[in-house]
């Protein structure tokens, strides 16, 4: 099954709508609640990152019998130093983002904690792509 959602940069009133819609899909598919939580927290963090940092973005999700792959591609400033961005506490978020309760430099590391595989590609002044894979059967996990 394939799903696609469009994300507008800077629009915090709608941030999280795509994650909310996909959560309902997972519930309908009877995915266990603890697995749903891992998937949607990773997705929501990544969605908020697009809203916080990029001009626009697209979420493509592929649901397979054993796993979910979520690919988030944005047009935006890109990440100059991915290793640095993965550090807890490192943030380039604006005051507006912080007012919304985010921007503490925890997003990418929290995505990694909830994902089984996280791949990040970024080009300066072009954009960033996150590929997040979460296994649906957490008792039979294939790690990277």
């Amino acid at each position: 099954m394939l799903f696609e959602y469009s994300i507008k940069g800077g629009d915090f009133s709608t941030a999280g709508q795509a994650s909310s819609r996909f959560k309902k899909v997972l519930q309908q598919l009877n995915v266990p609640p603890q697995t749903i939580k891992r998937i949607v927290i990773a997705l929501y963090e990544a969605e908020v990152n697009i809203v916080a940092h990029a001009f626009e973005g697209t979420i493509n999700i592929e649901v397979q019998p054993g796993y979910v792959v979520m690919t988030l591609t944005d047009k935006g400033p890109g990440i100059p130093d991915i290793e640095k961005a993965m550090e807890v506490g490192y943030s380039t978020a604006s005051p507006k983002v912080r007012e919304m309760g985010f921007g503490a430099g925890m997003g990418l590391s929290n995505i990694k904690n909830n994902a089984d595989i996280l791949e990040i590609q970024s080009k300066i002044n072009q954009g960033t792509t996150l590929k997040i894979t979460v296994n649906l059967n957490q008792e039979n996990v294939i790690k990277e």
Partner: peptide, 10 residues
């Protein structure tokens, strides 16, 4: 703000 509830939902 609305993200308080979105966060709780997720």
């Amino acid at each position: 703000n609305v993200q308080t509830i979105r966060t709780s939902e997720m």
